[in-house]
């Protein structure tokens, strides 16, 4: 069984890599010029899907395994982005080092918030992160000498490996998807490890898990810190890909859209994350064309309510449950008819 799970993770990752690698060729089919120096609207959209995938995996793990929601995840995303932007434009820090700093800083902040909130039963974390998100947003907008206020920070340098500078859409596409797949594989490995089994036990029943000696509070804090560090990684990627940061992508609505991605992707499902990220990114692109004010927010609210009322485990796990049930029904029906299994 374990072998099978590992195999499946590997196969899924391989399939993902192949699909991702092939996409630019499809999108840029028939266009002129060297492939690595081209820009294209859809490539940009898919790059964003990769960034959101990293964010959504973190939230899926948090909601699914720790049973907690973060309503301020955009703040961690923003801290990652701003740390990268500030360090690379105001000091001579290299982009990779800045990315690392952002991730570490965010992890420490998440630890400070998570420890008091996750020690307790109940849902203090959601409210605390909601407040934290607001404050980070206010700081981004008001602390002008450092963050540039609402006009933000321009000319953030691109990431580079040796002479390869990730400055075109195709290169950014490969970079972001490579990191997104790395995050997915790491997460799938965590879920299938000893730690992951403990997580699942917590998900099933906190009391039972605690009785079996799983340190619940510590696990919850670990998941929360991990997911915030994923968010910081995504934020840093955002800063270096877009080359510009301003507060608006990191506001409360961004946090909500991340939660919607998590719900669509399914809680406790690693591979649902790209699905959630893609659905919401494409939906947002489509809704922008409509003339109604705030229609995206209204739709997010409706999605959250409808998905949670009818499929409390999220869309993907809802489908999984349905498939399992169907398979079991078919098997019992076959057994009843006396057919060999």
């Amino acid at each position: 069984m374990r072998w099978f799970t590992a195999q499946r993770t590997f196969l899924a990752a391989l399939l993902g890599v192949l699909l991702a690698a092939a996409l630019p060729f499809v999108l840029l089919h028939g266009s002129a010029g060297p492939l690595l120096e081209q820009n294209n609207y859809w490539l940009g959209v898919f790059t964003f899907i990769a960034i959101y995938t990293i964010l959504a995996v973190g939230l899926n793990l948090l909601m699914g395994y720790a049973g907690q929601a973060s309503l301020g995840h955009a703040a961690f995303y923003g801290i990652g982005a701003y740390t990268s932007a500030i360090l690379t434009t105001r000091t001579a820090c290299s982009p990779w080092l800045a990315m690392l700093c952002g991730i570490v800083l965010t992890g420490v902040v998440a630890l400070l918030i998570g420890m008091p909130c996750l020690r307790l039963r109940g849902h203090y974390l959601a409210m605390a992160t909601l407040g934290f998100g607001w404050i980070v947003f206010i700081v981004m907008r008001q602390w002008e000498p450092i963050t540039g206020g609402s006009s933000g920070i321009e000319n953030v340098p691109s990431l580079a490996i040796g002479g390869l500078v990730f400055d075109h859409d195709v290169k950014c596409f490969y970079l972001t998807w490579a990191l997104a797949l790395l995050v997915l594989v790491i997460s799938a490995n965590i879920v299938n490890s000893r730690v992951g089994r403990a997580f699942r036990a917590v998900h099933g029943s906190e009391t039972a898990a605690a009785a079996l000696g799983v340190p619940i509070a510590r696990f919850k804090v670990q998941v929360f810190v991990l997911s915030s560090m994923y968010a910081a990684l995504a934020g840093s990627l955002y800063a270096h890909v877009v080359k510009y940061v301003n507060p608006s992508p990191f506001d409360f609505h961004a946090s909500v859209s991340l939660v919607v991605m998590g719900c669509i992707g399914g809680m406790a499902s690693v591979w649902g994350a790209p699905l959630g990220a893609a659905t919401i990114t494409l939906l947002k692109e489509r809704l922008q064309l409509l003339p109604w004010r705030d229609i995206d927010v209204i739709i997010y609210g409706l999605i959250l309510i409808v998905v949670m009322v009818f499929l409390p485990g999220g869309l993907v796990s809802g489908v999984q449950v349905a498939v399992t049930r169907l398979r079991r029904q078919r098997r019992t029906a076959a057994a009843r008819e006396g057919a060999p299994l």
């Binding site: 049973g67 849902h123 939660v259 705030d294 927010v297 209204i298 959250l304 309510i305 409390p312």
Partner: peptide
């Protein structure tokens, strides 16, 4: 939701309601 729904899904429903109301008001 089903009786065995986890508290997190109930909380997300209230978050959804909050966002929905805010969206309608903004609109």
């Amino acid at each position: 939701p089903r009786k065995d729904a986890s508290p997190i899904s109930l909380i997300i429903i209230t978050v959804g309601a909050s966002v929905l109301l805010q969206g309608i008001a903004g609109n």
